[in-house]
Design a protein around this nucleic acid. Structure first.
Lengths: 230, 230
DNA sequence: GCAAAAGTGTTAACTTTACACCCATGT
DNA sequence: ACATGGGTGTAAAGTTAACACTTTTGC
């Protein structure tokens, strides 16, 4: 065990749980740590908050510095403050989470704190630094909870997607089977998907129609009292 | 404005939002502050966390010291960390919340930090210290959100209650009208209320039957896949 | 006997579930 | 022509919503 570092006295950090969806699989963004503690180990992209910085700002800054990602819609998840969660001293951490569309050219750490950032399937998460496995667990619970009651799935898919992709996302994250006809009826009935008049290309079967999520339409429906529920 | 106090550098606190229900009215527990900052003003019962204390423990300790309350089931709500939320320095605060049964003899502050603790109707909250009005707002949102999907109402009522009291609680907190017959059918149908075979006393109208919430029964129903929803 | 709240059932509208076959495309 | 996933409707079961009168009790 490392000895306590007095600079870590009463200090706090932010850790980001960033979900993405790719190849039918839910993934999260991990970095390889290039500094103590847990040097060389995989961890959530997180770091200390600056003294003159609001929490939400810190979350966005830290995410950018460690991964190169910008404009993720970060939401506060939970605060972890067990006395011994950090080997160098008392550090409470505020966890944030976000759902984003994975793009291949996204990931470029801007500071040496992280060696690299990469997407890891949630079914293949190694032992992480600190209490990050636990943080991820809480984030997964929250994601599963929100998936049924808020149209969060659309943030994970590409802008243009097929109804089967959408159904697959729900089935994969919630680990349930969904009846295709009922699913389509319901989703189409919500009346916030726009049929793009385009089709999939380069698939070796009947090409599916492409849709996009109409966020403005969704928001105006919500104002009229509509409640998303899958 | 007070000058910054170097002792408050990178320090964190806990604030508790404690809900109670009495006389058909939702209330929260406030203290009158006996120390700087905001001396003499009403505030949520909160204080600094000790260095060697887990967050959950700190929440329970602080609540006890400032109000005398014990055994409240405290749940973490949200963390507030705006740079200027505290006039003496940077203090992030982790808000906790709890629903409890109000009893008249509960409230006795154990340390001089609070002059007194008292229940205040949420419709009559004054301007509070720090950003506590905002914290309360977030807590109210969370309470309203949870009320429909978790049997939290029973934590606010006395152990023995009538169905009208229960209905009144929902109507008062959610600010909606509920059909009595449908409400009773649904609640009775859940099959986790126990009819006590007793009746109200000293009311000048037909006395209502008393019920209690069977928590064990509820939990075993949940295990079988039951989902509370009002 | 009257005021005040307790208690009780039925029907129509709507929502959810279960279920099976033909279609379009690439190889 | 076959393999692969895309796309479609109906009926039964279950749930929710609307609605009005009688009962009990204290004063």
């Amino acid at each position: 065990m490392l000895s306590k570092d007095p600079n870590y006295h009463n200090t706090f950090s932010i850790d980001n749980v960033i979900f993405g969806f790719d190849e039918g699989d839910l993934k999260i963004l991990l970095i390889e740590r290039a500094e103590e503690a847990f040097i060389g180990q995989m961890a959530l992209p997180g770091n200390l908050v600056l003294e003159d910085e609001d929490l939400d700002h810190g979350a966005a800054r830290i995410l950018f510095e460690l991964t190169g990602l910008q404009n993720a819609h970060l939401e506060q998840l939970y605060t972890f403050g067990d006395v011994n969660r950090h080997p160098l001293g008392r550090v409470i951490t505020v966890a944030y989470y976000s759902l984003i569309r994975i793009k291949s050219d996204d990931l470029k750490p801007r500071i040496s704190f992280a060696k690299r950032a990469s997407w890891v399937s949630v079914s293949k998460i190694p032992k992480l630094a600190f209490d990050h496995n636990r943080i991820l667990e809480i984030a997964l619970e929250r994601l599963r909870g929100q998936l049924r009651y808020r149209p969060v799935g659309f943030e994970l898919l590409p802008e243009k997607f097929t109804l089967s992709q959408l159904q697959g996302l729900y089935e994969s994250i919630l680990q349930i089977a969904i009846d295709t006809r009922n699913f389509r009826k319901k989703i189409i009935g919500f009346d916030f998907l726009v049929e793009l008049g385009e089709k999939q290309k380069e698939v070796s079967h009947r090409a599916a129609k492409l849709y996009r999520f109409d966020k403005k339409r969704y928001q105006s429906l919500v104002k009229l009292g509509f409640n998303f529920e899958l």
